[in-house]
Amino acid sequence: MHKNNKNRAFLKWAGGKYSLLEHILPHLPHSPKLIEPFFGAGSVALNAEYENYQLNDINKDLVNLYKLIQGSSQAFIEELAPLFTKETNDSDFYYERREEFNSSDDKFRRALLFVYLNRHGYNGLCRYNRKGGFNVPFGRYVKPKMPDAEIRNFAARFQKAEFTNLDYVDVIKKAPDNSVIYCDPPYIPISKTASFTQYATNGFSLEAQENLANTVKEAVASRPITVVISNHDTPLSRKLYQGAKFKSFSARRFISQNAQNRKPVKELVAIFCNKNM
């Protein structure tokens, strides 16, 4: 299940797992199917070897993009190329494209613009306002990379994958026997300034964290599946995932903007396994 050369996602993604793969992949057992209820940019599935994949995300733009690439990656790359030039790496052009994205109903055009905005926007963020408008500011990078090789690799690897846009509870409850589920939900805040009030704007409150933990425990208790969850290593996450096997490690991410206050973040991998597997 391990590879010497890691596959990179073609999207930049806050909270992406590319740098943490060595801590996650060893805990994903062999199985006919890998299911990801919180797929994001997909670094884990891109580097885990399974016959079948169900890759789910609540973000409709993301799922639409993946389905289009799965069907015709070369045509997509050809149409994307004009958005990756010296002239397009410009704040006025960026904000015009962002406005176009927010007003467009064309699935193909929205998918192209989603990749452009992702690679040219600030810090790989994917954020919408309350009206559903994408509102990430211009990133000011020297030369954003056109991810054509990564898109081709993604399309080839997931040619037969099932991409879904469902609630995570439905995905977990309907998972077939003997499947492996990897959950990478929005993380529990660990800084004193972060709160679940702010956090809930991403649609994932404390109640949602508890619901995820309870849904996983019920699923594992009732049938032969394995569920692996990533989160910050906090007293709350250990309490929520009680009964799981824990693996803790330091991540190379930092939570403070003040360099003097920067400390490595502790990550937790919780492994729930049905005893019959």
Rank of each mutant, 00 (worst) to 15 (best):
K3V: 04
L11T: 05
K12R: 15
W13R: 05
A14I: 09
G16H: 03
K17N: 06
Y18A: 08
L20P: 00
E22A: 10
H23P: 00
H23I: 01
I24H: 11
P26N: 12
P26S: 13
L28G: 12
L28D: 08
H30S: 13
H30T: 03
H30C: 02
S31P: 02
S31Y: 05
L34H: 02
I35R: 08
I35K: 10
F39I: 00
G40V: 08
G40S: 06
G42Y: 03
S43F: 02
A45L: 09
L46R: 12
L46I: 04
N47C: 03
N47W: 04
A48V: 02
A48R: 12
Y50S: 08
Y50C: 10
Y50V: 07
N52T: 03
L55K: 08
D57S: 12
D57R: 01
I58Y: 15
L62K: 10
G71P: 00
Q74S: 15
A75Y: 00
A81T: 05
A81L: 07
P82T: 04
L83C: 01
K86V: 09
T88L: 03
N89M: 10
D90I: 01
S91W: 03
F93E: 08
E96K: 09
R97E: 14
R98Y: 04
R98A: 07
E100H: 12
F101S: 13
N102V: 05
N102H: 14
S104P: 01
D106E: 14
R110T: 09
R110D: 10
A111V: 02
A111W: 02
L113D: 15
F114H: 03
V115E: 14
Y116E: 11
R119W: 05
R119I: 03
N123F: 02
G124W: 06
L125N: 11
C126Y: 04
R127W: 03
G132A: 07
G139L: 06
G139C: 06
G139Y: 06
V142C: 09
K145T: 15
M146C: 14
D148V: 06
A149C: 01
N153H: 06
T164A: 14
L166S: 13
D167I: 02
D167F: 04
I172P: 03
I172S: 13
K174C: 08
A175Y: 08
P176F: 02
N178M: 09
D184I: 02
Y187V: 03
Y187P: 01
I188M: 07
I188L: 10
P189I: 07
K192P: 00
S195Y: 11
F196N: 11
Y199P: 00
T201M: 09
F204M: 11
S205G: 13
L206T: 05
E207F: 01
A208V: 08
A208C: 05
Q209K: 08
N211K: 13
A213L: 07
N214F: 01
V216I: 15
V220T: 10
P224H: 04
P224I: 06
I225T: 09
T226V: 15
V227Q: 10
V227L: 14
V227D: 14
V227K: 11
V228R: 12
S230F: 01
S230M: 10
S230K: 07
L236M: 12
K239H: 12
K239C: 14
K239Q: 15
L240Y: 01
Y241M: 03
Y241F: 14
K247P: 00
F249M: 07
F249S: 05
S250I: 00
I255N: 13
N258Y: 05
L268I: 07
L268G: 06
V269I: 15
C273W: 01
M277F: 13
